[in-house]
Design a protein around this nucleic acid. Structure first.
Length: 154
DNA sequence: GCCAACGTTGGC
DNA sequence: GCCAACGTTGGC
């Protein structure tokens, strides 16, 4: 079992989108950063993923997802009308991958970024050491701490 | 291989 | 809207 954190602007994809469709896997696609892609490739079925809402009113962790399908070719890279189109990616040698994730838990409230920043136990977290990365691994300790914060009243 | 220019992310 | 961080591109 591995632990991850993924970022998304909630107007693109939020915990609500997953909550609305329990049991229905949703593609996590459009990742266009090599380090993030490499982490997507490492994901295994059943891995636990914290969802982080960025660039919005309530920045922070909104809930938990689980990986249901490991990395596969992201079809958006071949669709010229998609904002995630990549003209340099070839069908016989795709650059980008997607995984599928399913709803697991919506926190009672967003765990705010400021709260996460205040905890020394998270000071070495990828969230702070690799500021602009959108897919990152978490240690078991980091994951369980953030999961616990999500279960507390806000 | 170096590095300046440029573009994007994302908090504030 | 600003700007720091930082990844990518392309000339040399």
């Amino acid at each position: 079992m591995q632990y991850w954190l993924v970022k998304s602007e909630p107007n693109e994809c939020s915990i609500e989108d997953f909550h609305r469709s329990p049991g229905i896997p949703i593609p996590w696609d459009g990742v266009r950063n090599y380090q993030a892609r490499n982490f997507l490739n490492q994901m295994a079925q059943g891995d636990a993923v914290l969802l982080y809402h960025s660039s919005c009113q309530h920045i922070g962790i909104s809930g938990i997802l689980n990986v249901t399908r490991t990395a596969y070719t992201d079809p958006l890279q071949f669709q010229p009308e998609s904002p995630y189109f990549d003209a340099k990616s070839k069908v016989d040698k795709p650059r980008w991958v997607a995984v599928d994730m399913v709803f697991t838990q919506k926190f009672s409230g967003i765990v705010p970024l400021a709260r996460l920043k205040s905890l020394t136990a998270l000071s070495e977290c990828y969230l702070f050491t690799h500021k602009r990365l959108s897919v990152m691994p978490l240690t078991f300790q980091e994951f369980t701490l953030m999961e616990h914060l999500g279960g507390l009243p806000t």
